[in-house]
């Protein structure tokens, strides 16, 4: 899964901070998050609910709504992975409209809520297609049928209303909708959380096939780490609005370096391979208004060190696989000591 020459960067997010409200009672739901999305890759974003995944995704796509507010940071889109970048945070609404769906599409968690209940399924495709392409109505409708066919929905469903479809069909329809203008990037916020496990696997497999066919990049958000391992090239793990671990999917699954990632991995059954004993993470997600000092995970951490309460660990930059954890630093230190001992 690790590519020899990394693909060019499509989306570059730098030190993004998003707050709810402003002034004294501002809640910082995303805190200095940086990551890159490469062309054609599937980047998984994992974390318990409340860790700021959706807030991050709506901010990256400029879909955040009040009281959410981007406090600082940058989001740069490089069309086709080119050197020139478009500063999404500085773009005007009209400039954004040009990019939307044409380059950047989204899939939401609840397809029932994301589809207009009073509009035929096909019309919701036609709307998107005709906003960006100069095609006739008839052509747009047959394009909608094609798209439904891609995700295994009978084409006669194009004239159905959302409530007439099953949950799995609706979810697949929103994925088909995201493909309408063949975007480069699709941001999916928990697209499989609302469907059952069988449908979940079907959707994941179909997504992988479509990715091979069309070559788009996906940011796939979920709280289910074992699902991500099946799907993603790289995974980033979020806790309390920060990235606590970033690395290749296999490395994070085999060798999670942050105790939180370990806990997350062990709280979902793997889709393949031997069953592990399932353990939840003790305690509950932190109150963002009153974060613990030092490492935010420290009160729940089974491997807590005394200095965890005072020192906030940073995510190491420019490494294949890194975790924001003090243990990690002492582990690195230990490796260094060992090699020094050997060399002596």
């Amino acid at each position: 899964m690790i590519k020899e020459t990394p693909s060019p960067v499509l989306l570059d997010v730098g030190e993004l901070t998003v707050e709810y409200g402003s002034g004294e009672d501002a809640v910082r739901a995303v805190d200095g998050v940086s990551f890159q999305l490469r062309r054609g890759e599937i980047l998984g974003v994992a974390g318990e609910s409340g860790s700021g995944k959706s807030t991050l995704m709506t901010a990256v796509t400029r879909l955040q709504r009040p009281p959410a507010r981007i406090a600082s940071g940058s989001v740069t889109y490089h069309p086709g992975g080119s050197g020139s970048g478009i500063d999404l945070l500085a773009s005007t609404p009209a400039e954004l409209r040009e990019l939307r769906w044409e380059s950047l599409a989204v899939v939401f968690q609840s397809a029932m809520a994301a589809l207009n209940p009073v509009m035929r399924l096909g019309a919701q495709f036609v709307d998107a297609i005709r906003a960006h392409r100069r095609v006739g109505r008839k052509e747009a409708w047959s394009r909608a049928e094609e798209l439904l066919d891609l995700v295994g929905i009978p084409t006669n469903r194009v004239r159905s209303y959302p409530h007439e479809l099953s949950g799995g069909m609706r979810q697949r329809a929103t994925i088909a909708l995201a493909l309408a203008c063949e975007p480069e990037i699709i941001v999916m916020d928990e697209p499989t959380t609302a469907v059952d496990v069988v449908m979940q696997r079907q959707i994941v497999h179909r997504l992988m096939r479509l990715r091979r066919q069309f070559g788009f990049a996906i940011v796939f958000v979920t709280h289910d780490l074992s699902l991500l391992v099946e799907l993603a090239d790289r995974i980033m793990v979020m806790y309390a609005g920060r990235i606590v671990e970033l690395g290749s999917a296999s490395a994070i699954y085999r060798d999670p370096r942050h105790p939180y990632s370990q806990g997350l991995r062990d709280s979902f059954p793997p889709l393949h391979g031997p069953l592990r004993e399932l353990r939840g993470i003790p305690g509950s997600p932190p109150d963002l208004r009153a974060l613990p000092t030092g490492c935010a995970f420290q009160p729940r951490c089974p491997k807590r060190l005394p200095e965890c309460a005072s020192t906030r660990p940073e995510l190491p930059l420019l490494v294949e696989h890194g975790a924001a954890c003090l243990l990690q630093r002492s582990a690195d230190q230990a490796t260094v000591d060992e090699s020094e001992a050997v060399s002596r």
Partner: peptide, 9 residues
């Protein structure tokens, strides 16, 4: 929100 995300006027 999805309608806005689609880039509709």
């Amino acid at each position: 929100l999805l309608a806005q995300a689609k880039g509709l006027a």
